[in-house]
């Protein structure tokens, strides 16, 4: 299988940020199935996005090996050399042996395991989508607040709006910290992200949104009017709820806020 290796190597050395780097011990020739015996070989490793590169030394200008951190898990492992702090990158594919690596201290080991286990494209995409929708909500609620305070001078609907939103978030809409997912509750029901919940629970974030024909950042963004209508539905619904509640609380009062 061909790979645009020159571009990959160029990316490895480019000025785009490295997500983690340091010396690690590795067993077996880089890129080939490791043979965990002896003291292994000390190489300089650089994590960039979902790619883990190794180099002969810190100054080396050509990567020795590449591991694409997709569809893999990272876990603590036993090193052939007792004083090393080892971990393994395991692929869920037939015939693929794990990559055994070792740091020279517990803190470095933990930092590597954490960085590697969050390196997948899916994790990044999950955070981006979450922030994208938070930003949109913030803008909508600001606009809504402005229009509401013009009409009614009411701060109350706004506080309900933010309550509603945060309960949506906590209902497992976003799960970066390996906590067990909570089922979709009433709060998240009308948010686009919340509809994805059952599959998130089954597959975990890495496989999230893959294979659904969706572009990495939610496709609605590319067309503002679609996005506007989409979130508009939620706002209209929310407003109706508040108005009903207001009417309920103030039975006998005049209706004061027609949409």
């Amino acid at each position: 299988m061909k790979l645009n290796k020159r571009s990959v190597a160029h990316y490895a050395l480019s000025d785009s940020p490295a997500d983690h780097m340091g010396f690690l011990r590795t067993w077996g020739a880089p890129g080939t199935p490791p043979t965990p015996s002896g003291t292994g070989r000390r190489c300089w490793f650089v994590l960039k996005g979902n790619l883990l590169f190794s180099f002969e030394s810190r100054e080396a200008r050509a990567p020795l090996s590449l591991v694409v951190l997709e569809g893999c898990t990272v876990e603590l492992a036993e090193a052939p050399v007792p004083e090393e702090f080892a971990f393994a990158i395991r692929f869920n594919a037939p015939g693929v042996r794990p990559h055994l690596l070792a740091a020279d201290g517990q803190a470095a080991q933990e930092a590597w395991v954490k960085a590697l286990s969050r390196a997948s494209f899916g994790y990044m995409r999950l955070v981006v989508r979450e922030l994208e929708s938070q930003l949109h909500d913030a803008r909508r609620s600001l606009a809504l607040h402005r229009s509401m305070s013009q009409k009614v001078g009411a701060s109350r609907p706004k506080s309900q709006a933010s309550d509603h939103r945060s309960s949506g978030l906590e209902n497992g809409h976003f799960l970066p910290r390996d906590c067990s997912p909570v089922g979709a509750g009433e709060g998240g029901g009308c948010r686009p992200g919340a509809r994805d919940l059952p599959e998130w629970e089954l597959q975990g974030p890495t496989s999230l949104l893959l294979g659904r024909g969706q572009s990495p950042v939610s496709p609605e963004t590319s067309c503002f009017s679609t996005l506007h209508d989409w979130y508009g539905q939620e706002i209209v619904q929310l407003r109706q709820e508040w108005q009903q509640r207001d009417r309920g609380n103030q039975a006998g009062c005049k209706r004061q806020d027609e949409p």
Binding site: L3, G31, T32, P33, F53, V68, G71, N92, A93
Partner: peptide, 12 residues
């Protein structure tokens, strides 16, 4: 630069 083709194949 070496890489494991099986890993890339699995990704594909």
């Amino acid at each position: 630069m070496r890489y494991n083709e099986k890993e890339l194949r699995a990704l594909s």
